[in-house]
Amino acid sequence: MVKRTGEVIMGVIGIVLSALFSIIGIVLNMGMNSPEVMSQIEEGMESDPNLQESGMTAGDMSAFMETAESMGSYLVILGIIASILGIIAVMTIVKNKKPVLSGIMFILAALVVGLGTIGFGFIPGLLFLIAGIMAFVRKPKRTETVY
């Protein structure tokens, strides 16, 4: 029997970090929907001399805000998907039940959070990827039975 402690620990840390992307997305959505936050951001943009010199207009600012708002929903969805895949992978690797299924789920979670966030989810993606590779590679020791 192979102990799968490493895979479980890396999976749980990856799940927590993936869930943080969902929390960040929720905070972004709440901030972009709040009129007070929007007015503070607009005031800060108007008073910043560096932005005025760069030629950023009010239209550019509204496009930036729309992008940030859509990014929030995107981060929430990616975080939830990666967390669910990670939870399934951890549940199937405990007690060495189904290491192949677990490895596939870990690698899918790594792809979702690593590539889906365009590299911002590098750490949880890397943890999921290492756990997935470990799930595939580690095999139980063969014992020879002599009769």
Rank of each mutant, 00 (worst) to 15 (best):
A63Q: 15
A63P: 06
A63H: 13
F64A: 15
F64Y: 15
F64E: 12
M65N: 09
M65D: 05
M65S: 09
E66H: 10
E66T: 07
E66G: 04
E66K: 08
E66M: 07
T67S: 15
T67A: 13
T67W: 10
T67Q: 13
T67V: 13
T67Y: 14
T67L: 15
T67D: 09
T67H: 12
A68N: 13
A68M: 15
A68I: 13
A68D: 09
A68K: 12
E69C: 02
E69L: 11
E69F: 09
E69W: 09
E69S: 14
S70H: 09
S70Y: 10
S70W: 08
S70L: 09
S70M: 09
M71Q: 13
M71C: 12
M71I: 13
M71Y: 12
G72F: 04
G72N: 05
G72E: 04
S73C: 10
S73A: 14
Y74A: 07
Y74D: 01
Y74F: 14
Y74R: 12
Y74M: 13
Y74C: 07
L75R: 07
V76H: 06
V76P: 02
V76R: 03
V76C: 09
V76Q: 10
V76N: 03
I77P: 05
I77H: 09
I77D: 03
I77W: 11
I77Y: 12
I77E: 04
L78Q: 03
L78E: 04
L78G: 01
L78N: 02
L78W: 03
L78Y: 05
G79M: 06
G79I: 03
G79N: 02
G79W: 02
G79A: 06
G79T: 06
G79K: 01
I80N: 00
I80T: 06
I80S: 01
I80H: 03
I81V: 15
A82Y: 02
A82E: 01
A82V: 06
A82S: 11
A82P: 02
A82N: 04
A82G: 08
S83P: 06
S83K: 03
S83F: 10
S83N: 06
I84F: 13
I84A: 12
I84W: 08
I84V: 13
L85H: 04
L85Y: 05
L85I: 07
G86N: 04
G86T: 00
G86A: 06
I87D: 00
I87Q: 00
I87H: 02
I88Q: 03
I88T: 01
I88R: 04
I88V: 12
I88H: 01
A89W: 00
A89N: 01
A89K: 01
A89M: 00
V90M: 05
V90P: 00
V90W: 00
M91T: 07
M91C: 09
T92E: 07
T92R: 08
T92C: 04
I93T: 06
I93Y: 02
I93P: 00
I93C: 01
I93D: 00
V94R: 08
K95E: 12
K95A: 11
K95V: 13
K95R: 15
N96C: 06
N96Y: 10
N96F: 05
N96A: 09
K97P: 05
K97W: 08
K97A: 13
K98M: 07
K98D: 10
K98R: 12
P99V: 10
P99G: 06
P99I: 12
P99S: 08
P99Q: 05
V100S: 14
V100R: 14
V100T: 15
V100M: 15
L101I: 10
L101F: 06
L101M: 11
L101P: 02
L101G: 07
